[in-house]
Computed example of a mutant assay.
Amino acid sequence: MKQPHFFIALSIPQSTKELLFYQCEKIKGTIPFQRWVHKEDYHITLAFLGSVPEEKVKACMENLEERLVNYSSFQLFLSGLGIFGVNTSPRILWYKNAYEEKLMKLQIIVKKVCLEAGFILDDKPFKPHITLARKYSGETPLSDELWNEADHSVNKTSYFNASQITLYRTHLDRTPKYETVFSIKLQH
């Protein structure tokens, strides 16, 4: 039997998920993508663990919970759209956040605990983001004009209180596709 995939992420509060969903609805007609992320699946990935035994992941989360016992919640400011891939035909559309030192430190702690638990993690630098859509599907390349129209139409002054770390299990055959397995609340 195939093992499920797991990842650790910063959870997004429901009110922010609603705001992001509203922003996506505003730009869907401007920049078409094949797959839009379900609003319940919005998150900021801190560590992708892959297909691993659930017991090993839960033990890692218990260690992480101990390390974060005094880690306080923080505000995270959303600052507009970003893309991964070629500008004219991007792979991923995402919402970016303003640089936040506490988020960067949190990801370092998560990564360290995961490595100590024996997980092999991606070596790419951490670029926090909330994925909104995948696979640009426009009939013509995405132009600077369309990109600017979409980016100018979204809210760049929103923020939320980052207060929970979640271990998710991926179900590719479901919508929404991420299931909460374990959560850690940060101090207020």
Rank of each mutant, 00 (worst) to 15 (best):
112 K>D: 15
84 F>G: 11
137 S>D: 11
163 S>R: 15
79 S>N: 14
47 A>W: 02
76 L>F: 11
63 N>E: 11
34 Q>G: 01
48 F>A: 07
48 F>K: 02
158 S>Q: 15
10 L>M: 10
4 P>S: 07
122 D>G: 02
99 Y>H: 06
117 A>G: 01
64 L>A: 10
166 T>D: 12
69 V>R: 15
151 D>R: 09
147 W>M: 02
22 Y>F: 10
121 L>Q: 03
50 G>P: 09
84 F>N: 09
171 H>W: 00
98 A>E: 15
106 L>Q: 00
109 I>G: 01
172 L>H: 06
113 V>Y: 07
32 P>N: 04
92 I>D: 02
38 H>M: 01
82 G>F: 03
120 I>R: 07
92 I>P: 03
95 Y>P: 00
126 F>D: 09
10 L>S: 02
17 K>A: 10
53 P>S: 08
55 E>L: 03
82 G>K: 12
136 Y>T: 08
41 D>P: 08
20 L>W: 05
83 I>P: 04
8 I>D: 11
26 K>D: 06
113 V>N: 12
12 I>S: 03
99 Y>L: 01
25 E>V: 07
59 A>Y: 04
122 D>N: 10
27 I>K: 07
48 F>T: 09
67 R>A: 14
116 E>W: 07
72 S>Y: 11
31 I>F: 07
95 Y>E: 06
11 S>W: 08
133 A>V: 09
56 K>P: 04
131 T>D: 03
